[in-house]
Design a binder for these strands. Structure first.
Lengths: 198, 198
DNA sequence: CAATTACTATACTATTTTCGTATTTTTGTA
DNA sequence: TACAAAAATACGAAAATAGTATAGTAATTG
């Protein structure tokens, strides 16, 4: 569903803002309309129901994320920098995205929604792995590296950056991210490309 | 209303947590009970209705704040340090407290609630001013200083610490707080007690 | 042990909220 | 003026929520 209209966009924005904070269940259409400065009739002109808006918000966010990722991959930066940028945006989005929103999405009785998310997630996952492999062929990453593993690890990241021990060890959540990036980039073997500083 | 019971306390805690995030309107009693691990009947054993829980949460928070303030005033620190500590906790609480919660409180149709808040606020305000005046008599602050003015200014603080210009000027929100504290403590006249560092 | 207390689970009604649509009014515009 | 888009309002149906009643279970206490 392409969003081109002005009112439609402000509805989308309002939906994003409210869903983000409070999740999808708690927000009523009237509320979205109020924030968007649109009437309910206008809402139903552009979206069949609340679920459709939620999907649109979800899609929009995923698209933005993918775009961001693409920019990082295309940029002329080193493997280390790419990795760090990726982990950082991942960490950011995790911190900003309301868990509420995803919770409501996942725990919807309408299992149609779950399938929808699963599909979308799988698609994005594939795209990312492909981009990785392309970069790999260009020599940005070592040839026997498996992108799937990195993605799996990055799923664990939210737990890492909020771990008090790690944060204390590294100084700040940002440093945790960088440290992990360095770790994955160079492993633990010492080499001449980088020097580890305390 | 004194809270002594165990279940009652977990209900209060759950209420605080949920109200804080989403405000008072959006949260149902069932939800509070679920989080608190209590049944609805238990809820109604301790609270007449949802509003009572909200009031209890509000009271509890105000009491905590007042206690914190008292500790600062009683402590053997200088005027500057007291002021900074006060502004800092104020800034913290403002950043942490959900605006949602207060919004729901203020915009309740039941104007009884508004009066309740107004009363409580006035009480706390008076207590604080009194504490100030006592400290003033002990010589902690200059004798012709008017505590009311400081409180008035501190109402404006949330706007200050989020002002991009000020934050950039001082380096960080924390620095803004300290700078303001210094400003109010020593004014702008140079003296030998402190040196202003860039 | 018996009695009391604290609590849970469930079911139920009344009330409120929300949804989605229909109708009328306003606004912007060719 | 005429016309289309959107707002405001109203409204019935469906869903969520509040608050109560009942029955029964677990934990405490004398």
């Amino acid at each position: 569903m392409k969003v081109t209209n002005k009112k439609q966009q402000s509805l989308l924005a309002a939906g994003r803002e409210l869903f983000w904070k409070h999740g999808f269940r708690r927000i009523s259409i009237d509320e979205v309309c109020k924030v968007a400065g649109a009437s309910k009739m206008t809402f139903y002109r552009y979206f069949p129901d609340k679920l459709a808006l939620a999907k649109a918000v979800f899609d929009d966010e995923v698209d933005k994320g993918t775009l961001q990722f693409r920019e990082i991959m295309i940029s002329e930066s080193s493997a280390s920098e790419k990795l760090e940028a990726m982990l950082r945006t991942k960490a950011d989005s995790v911190n900003n995205i309301s868990q509420e929103f995803l919770n409501d999405f996942y725990s919807d009785k309408d299992s149609d929604l779950r399938a929808y998310i699963a599909q979308k997630t799988a698609d994005v996952w594939n795209e990312i792995v492909n981009d990785f492999k392309m970069a790999q062929q260009k020599g940005v990453f070592r040839s026997d590296f498996k992108p799937e593993i990195l993605l799996y690890i990055s799923q664990q990241l939210p737990g890492f950056i909020n771990d008090p021990y790690l944060v204390q060890l590294c100084g700040s959540p940002q440093e945790v991210v960088m440290e992990i990036a360095r770790f994955f980039t160079y492993g633990i073997a010492p080499n001449d490309k980088t020097t580890v500083e305390k």
